[in-house]
Amino acid sequence: MSHLVGTIAGMTDTKTHLHRDLRNARESLLWKLDGLGEYDLRRPMTPTGTNLLGLVKHIGGIEAGYLGEAFGLPVSDPPPWFADDPDEPNTDMWARSEESSAVIIGFYRRVWAHADATIEALDLDAPGTVPWWPAEDADVTLHRMIVLMIGETNRHGGHADIVRELIDGAAGLRPDFIGLPEGGEAWWADYRDRLGQAARKAAGQ
């Protein structure tokens, strides 16, 4: 009996830690939008069009699916872009001019609350199904989906890190922990120069 209690307690502790990691990843991603105007939130910053608001729109849809629909708990009142033409690629990766940034960010926060309720209501081994995955992979557990969402959110958070730095030079993990050396502009210029020299030397240039 004591072993069973320990196992249950361990699973609860694991879920608490995973949930905390997911919350931290969400906050870090959304922080990258702080202080920017509509143009900077939306403008494409890479050859494939990566943009900050599109990242939030995309990850909100992913989380709504993996921590909602996959467990028979779809998000109520889904936004209009959920009904976009599936034959048009990347519709969830950018914001149309008529799509309010406040609505997109608000939807993401609403997804947080919905997914949090799913996580709190179910055990880690609770079964789910991802119908848009191949049949052999479609059966999942809550544990697997939380881990997947941590990975997805951090992956797109990394994209947002680079996009935000390209826009205005702002960098760091979160407001209370930047996680970068406290060098000034001259220090960073020298740092980049040293990296360039090392790259050229390695390439025999």
Rank of each mutant, 00 (worst) to 15 (best):
T50H: 07
Y108S: 15
D13S: 13
G169C: 10
R192K: 12
R164N: 04
I162G: 02
H58C: 07
V111Y: 05
A203T: 03
D190R: 14
I162Q: 08
A70G: 06
I8Q: 08
L148A: 00
Y108G: 01
P79R: 04
H19Q: 15
I150M: 04
I162R: 06
I146V: 13
I178Y: 08
M1P: 02
N154C: 07
Y66P: 01
P79T: 12
E165K: 02
I62C: 10
V130N: 01
H114R: 11
P86V: 03
N154G: 01
A170Q: 15
D168E: 08
A135N: 09
D87N: 14
A9V: 07
D139I: 00
N90H: 10
A113C: 00
G169R: 14
R164I: 05
D87M: 11
L33A: 08
L142P: 01
T91Y: 01
D13G: 01
M145E: 13
K57R: 10
V147I: 10
L52C: 06
R200Q: 12
P79H: 06
D21I: 07
K32N: 04
H156C: 06
A115D: 08
G151H: 10
A64F: 00
H17T: 13
H3T: 04
I167T: 06
G10N: 11
I162T: 13
Q205L: 12
H143T: 08
E136T: 11
R192A: 14
S100G: 14
H17D: 13
V140M: 01
M93V: 06
F177D: 13
Y108L: 15
G65M: 06
L41H: 09
G157L: 01
L124A: 11
E69I: 02
F177I: 07
T50D: 06
L195C: 14
A117W: 00
A203K: 05
D87L: 10
G60N: 13
V103K: 14
L195G: 06
G10S: 08
R43P: 00
G128H: 02
E120N: 11
W187L: 05
I59Q: 13
R110Y: 12
G49S: 02
T153W: 06
I119N: 05
L55D: 04
M1I: 09
A189Q: 13
